[in-house]
């Protein structure tokens, strides 16, 4: 099926938003095309569930379309659609209420020790040793093991490249909470990937 209007993809974001707000549907579909892959990845990463992620993708863009007139043009459309998608994804998570789900506004345990048990240099260029799919699986598994509140912060800050403030706003948590969770998420991922990618054999500390 042809996508509904795809002749507007060459325009910059602001131009597309202006046109979409004026009623140009092809401009809106160009925005969807631009961000659908990233929004789906984000939804899948947060919900850890394919069906939920598909729902989130659709609901986020439909909601954005319905509420386009409330979008403030001095904001970034991408940040806005990310916030909508994150809210939808978190609602899905809460609905499922699995035992592993931790409310995102739960205070951070600042007494928690930073785990750094695995201190070893990596083999050279692990990206080249694994196929793209293998690498994707390794990274997905590492992210899945994070607690949901850490996972969401890591995804928004380091994968979707939102600022600390934008991340705090999107998740409804404080800036210090974002900073603290990001640090712990990064260190936890470092730990997991080091287990996978560390240089084998006796030369672990050969660089020293």
């Amino acid at each position: 099926m042809a996508s509904p209007g795809n002749n507007a993809s060459g325009f910059d974001e602001q131009e597309l938003v202006t046109r979409a707000q004026a009623g140009d549907n092809s401009a809106f579909t160009a925005l969807v095309q631009r961000y659908q892959n990233r929004i789906y990845r984000l939804a899948k990463n947060i919900t850890q569930n394919k069906e939920d992620a598909e729902d989130v993708l659709q609901e986020a863009f439909l909601k954005a379309y319905s509420h386009l007139d409330t979008f403030q043009r001095n904001a970034k459309f991408y940040t806005w659609i990310v916030r909508i998608a994150v809210n939808e994804a978190l609602m899905k998570l809460r609905k499922r209420k699995t035992d592993r789900t931790v409310p995102l506004d739960e205070p951070v345990d600042t007494g928690e020790e930073t785990v750094n048990r695995e201190i070893a240099v990596w083999e050279d260029n692990p990206e080249q040793r694994y196929s793209r799919d293998e690498m994707q699986q390794i990274l997905d598994e590492a992210v899945q093991d994070l607690k949901p509140d850490f996972r969401a912060v890591f995804l928004l800050r380091d994968i979707e490249e939102l600022s600390t403030e934008e991340t705090a706003e999107a998740l409804g948590v404080s800036v210090p909470a974002v900073k603290s969770r990001l640090l712990r998420a990064r260190l936890a991922l470092r730990e997991k990937l080091t287990r996978k990618f560390k240089r084998k054999g006796e030369d672990v500390f050969a660089h020293l």
Binding site: Q36, N37, M135, L139, I159, R186, T194
Partner: peptide, 22 residues
């Protein structure tokens, strides 16, 4: 030193993965 280096590499591999088409 190793933690800094491997954290930077961790971020690099994550950021190097473009989203796959839906």
């Amino acid at each position: 030193f190793v933690i800094v280096d491997t954290t930077q590499k961790t971020l690099k591999v994550f950021r190097g993965m473009d989203p796959q088409p839906i």
